[in-house]
Simulated assay, not measured.
Amino acid sequence: MERQTGIVVTGVSGRMGRMLVDQITASPDMRLTGAIERAGHGWIGQDLGTAMGGAASGIIVTDDARAALGNGQVVIDFTAPAATVSLAALCADVGVAHVIGTTGMSDGDIAAIDRAAERTAIVRAGNMSLGVNLLTLLVKQVAAALDDSYDIEVIEAHHRHKVDAPSGTALMLGQAAADGRGVALPDVADRGRDGITGARVPGHIGFSAVRGGDIIGDHDVMFAADGEQITLRHRASDRSLFARGALKAALWVANRAPGHYDMLDVLGLKPTK
């Protein structure tokens, strides 16, 4: 039997953390080697299995990330920007690969992750699903084919608890549209409309966010011109697809050379230059 990949999960008490633990436990290709939570969390010092309401697992939840990383090859991280940036630097220090599903990052956060990726392998994606990453390729192709008489609007919907907007996936899709048109997204993004905004600026890429209920994640990219609209859509109906994508990324990135990768690299979909 081939050696299993050792996985550390941070933010282990959250919905995604629990799903990752369940899928790692069921996988023959990987094993859980560490569980991290923020300082002061009620699970600190407890056996992870017991804390999750099951049998003891032998994994003790800790807030000492350096100690937890010492037993693993890859850490999977769906937490918050500040925690993710700090963990990226630590992963670079100790030589552990880092899979990042955290969204809401600033340009400064991404620059810090770029620096960490000079010393360790990092996979970062606003969305880990196969379907969404295929959608980004389609959006880029359609945007390249249509001129700016077609207005582009990225429309996303998520559950009431989501704290960032637009979603990381919406920004991925907006970036794909901007790349297709050969423009810089910050120069053409309209990320909020309220009051008397004036007419839409030709060539701009708009973002609309909906928050409510338990919506897992819906994303539409609309290309609207006089007389017709084209809409590309992805709808998530099961949150576990994001965990599956993250674990696929973890297996792929283990022992990979330092670099800042994305899910198109993991899925073998990166366009050739």
Rank of each mutant, 00 (worst) to 15 (best):
A257N: 08
P271R: 11
M222A: 14
A111S: 14
M172Q: 13
T62M: 02
G126F: 02
S237L: 13
A82R: 12
A145G: 13
M16T: 12
D147F: 03
A121E: 02
F223W: 04
D47I: 06
L269V: 04
L32W: 02
D109R: 13
S240D: 15
A199N: 08
A56E: 13
A56Q: 09
R15L: 02
D218I: 14
D262K: 12
I155R: 09
S106A: 15
A55S: 12
A178E: 09
T169V: 15
R244P: 06
R235H: 14
D218F: 14
D114T: 03
I60R: 05
L185F: 13
R181P: 07
N255C: 07
N127L: 14
L264T: 13
I205H: 14
A68L: 09
P186E: 04
A116L: 09
R191P: 00
L135A: 06
G45S: 04
A246E: 06
A51H: 01
R244C: 08
V183G: 13
H41P: 02
W252N: 03
D22K: 15
A92S: 08
Q23R: 15
V74S: 04
L146P: 02
G198R: 06
D22T: 11
A249G: 12
H161F: 09
I7H: 07
F223C: 04
N255W: 03
